[in-house]
């Protein structure tokens, strides 16, 4: 059943992405509406798949890289669906949906390992840790996309080039605002997620900080967003710098998330062994 749901979700994301790519070149309200609905449809199915898996395993089913990547794709789509309602920056979908498809397809390539289920995942800390961090990552993903769009549009206006992208992309202020709000909500979530992680590590390994590569990279990521948010609130860093930092931040997220999982060894590797 799960596999059926996941396939439906993958297909829906692909169709939604194609719709959003068409929307990128044909500014038609109806195309957007259909693409949005298809993404929603896919997200519901993937949500059902995740719920089923979690129910079967008895804990949140985000344990290996494969599931984690798929979960990230789901969170990204869900945050976009909500953000679209809030910001009405439709073209953001043309950037977010391909990203979600890449994650979801990549999840099939990532090592999926079945390992003995212990009580290790059944702590409430794990649920807080995983949910908060993934939600934060989804929001950071949106900020990343908005950042790229900002840089493209800013370049157009600064260099006085008025091609297709100039007319198609929304205004700078709008993109900057999306960036800001995503990070404003994402950062506290990330903080909560990390604290929950430390608390959990303290309980399981008797030390909250273990010099695990993932921990180190997570802290670096946290610092990037902390700097970004602080500078924005304190001196009004915005625009290009904020966009670059949002891109750097999400890249750090991906390194923490994938690079460390796949390349380096540490505490978290027990989850992907």
């Amino acid at each position: 059943m799960e596999i059926v749901f996941l396939t439906v979700a993958t297909l829906s994301y692909c169709i939604g992405t194609i719709g959003y790519l068409i929307y990128l070149f044909h500014d038609r309200e109806r195309v957007h509406r259909v693409a949005w609905a298809v993404l929603l449809f896919g997200a519901l199915f993937q949500g059902a798949a995740i719920a089923l898996g979690s129910w079967r395993e008895g804990h949140l089913n985000v344990t290996d890289s494969r599931q984690a990547l798929a979960f990230l794709a789901w969170v990204l789509v869900v945050t976009y669906l909500f953000a679209q309602r809030r910001f009405q920056v439709r073209i953001l979908g043309s950037f977010v949906s391909p990203l979600a498809v890449v994650f979801l397809l990549a999840s099939n390539l990532a090592p999926g390992v079945i390992f003995p289920v212990g009580t290790i995942f059944q702590s409430a800390w794990v649920i807080v840790h995983v949910t908060a961090l993934f939600l934060a990552n989804g929001l950071f993903g949106l900020a990343f996309c908005a950042g790229i769009m900002y840089l493209v549009q800013e370049r157009n206006i600064k260099r006085k080039r008025f091609g297709y992208w100039y007319t198609r992309l929304p205004s700078l202020e709008r993109l900057d605002q999306v960036n800001y709000i995503c990070i404003l909500i994402g950062f506290p979530l990330m903080t909560i997620g990390l604290i929950a992680g430390f608390a959990y590590a303290g309980a399981v390994w008797h030390s909250p900080w273990n010099w695990d590569p993932k921990e180190i990279f997570a802290l670096i990521t946290w610092c990037i967003y902390a700097v970004l948010l602080h500078e924005r609130l304190a001196v009004g860093w915005r625009g290009r710098r904020a966009a670059w930092l949002a891109i750097a931040g999400f890249s750090a997220v991906l390194i923490t998330f994938l690079g460390v999982n796949l390349l380096l060894k540490g505490h978290h590797t027990i989850f992907i062994r």
């Binding site: 549009q153 206006i157 100039y166 007319t167 929304p170 205004s171 700078l172 202020e173 709008r174």
Partner: peptide
């Protein structure tokens, strides 16, 4: 059509640009 999005006077072009920078 995008007939409305093409500014053909200098002052109108300036307003359009402002809109691309500030939105509202």
């Amino acid at each position: 059509t995008r007939i409305g999005s093409c500014a053909v006077s200098i002052s109108y072009a300036a307003v359009e640009l402002a809109r691309k920078i500030f939105g509202e």
